[in-house]
């Protein structure tokens, strides 16, 4: 028995969960448990109250509505992975999911849990940045929306207040014809990436890049959408020259270092992965145009 003692709560509704969060000191919200449970087993996290959302059915949903994907915070990663609609309308999300942990952890892990845990190089965090999603947050006092770009405030720290709960996310679906890619480097498949890069590319009638979205994670505490790269790609012909310029730009970004990976190596990976992601996304955009 590893976790330190806590009082366990398993609310059935969002309202009950918010009420508990508002009234209990040192409470933590448990989603799929694939990050918080290890932290509790190690006693990095020792909440006095554990508010388990696994029986709050209203937080698990997945709907494609027009041009957006609406996902409940408690929607399992496996449900995103196996959704035919996600595969068709947002293949970059499915591709990213294939790198998220393993079969057994995706069976339990949730979208909301991953976003709130906010590991700097988590794949779902990267894709949320790429798509530019909006997070729906609730508390006893009400509800508010947070643009994903404003969600991360520091290393593994979100802008959620202690009494707030992530209820779901609205993710804009890539426009039709966009080519996608998700490229990462990790020491072993299923590990958190050291650096990851996702991309969406749209081509105009002349085959030039009409719009480009790039999300790069692993350099700092949250993924970045490098505006300089996205802007420079517009109007370019997709090819080695444009990709090389983008890669060189990425290789010049600031990067953090830790006990295992130097900043220089992260920059090297950023350069390589930006090139690969842009190349593959462009190729797929071309195929979509020809198909």
């Amino acid at each position: 028995m590893k976790p330190a003692p806590f009082v366990y709560h398993d609310p059935r509704t969002v309202a009950e969960a918010c009420d508990l969060l508002a009234t209990r000191e040192n409470a933590r919200v448990l989603a799929g448990g694939q990050s918080l449970m290890p932290m509790m087993n190690f006693r990095y996290a020792m909440p006095d109250h554990l508010i388990d959302l696994n029986r709050v059915d209203e937080l698990a949903y997945l709907r494609c509505e027009g041009e957006v994907l609406r996902v409940g915070a408690m929607t399992r990663q496996r449900d995103l992975e196996f959704s035919p609609e996600v595969g068709k309308r947002c293949p970059v999300l499915r591709e990213a999911l294939s790198h998220v942990g393993h079969r057994q952890t995706r069976n339990r892990g949730t979208l909301g849990g991953s976003l709130c845990h906010l590991d700097p190089s988590a794949e779902l965090v990267n894709v949320a940045a790429l798509l530019g999603g909006t997070l729906h947050v609730v508390s006893k006092g009400g509800a508010r929306d947070i643009p994903f770009a404003e969600f991360a405030v520091a290393y593994m720290t979100t802008s959620l207040q202690p009494d707030e709960l992530l209820a779901g996310a609205t993710l804009p679906l890539p426009a039709r014809g966009r080519g996608h890619a998700f490229a990462e480097f990790a020491r072993r498949h299923g590990d958190f990436a050291i650096v990851a890069c996702s991309a969406l590319i749209g081509l105009d009638r002349d085959g030039r890049i009409a719009d480009a979205a790039v999300a790069l994670s692993g350099l700092g505490h949250a993924p970045v959408r490098p505006a300089s790269i996205e802007r420079a790609l517009r109007g370019e012909k997709p090819g080695a020259a444009a990709f090389k310029a983008a890669a060189a730009e990425a290789g010049g970004f600031d990067a953090v270092a830790d006990a295992y990976v130097t900043a220089a190596y992260r920059r090297h990976l950023a350069r390589v992965l930006v090139y690969r992601a842009l190349e593959q996304a462009s190729m797929r955009a071309l195929e979509a145009g020809n198909g």
Binding site: M37, N41, D52, R78, T105, R108
Partner: peptide, 21 residues
């Protein structure tokens, strides 16, 4: 992965679930 069991027919890490769940 040594503790993997099926919960509701789906594989899961038994060390990352609480019995009450």
């Amino acid at each position: 992965g040594a503790c993997t069991v099926l919960v509701g027919g789906v594989s899961a890490r038994a060390c990352l679930m609480l019995a009450v769940q």
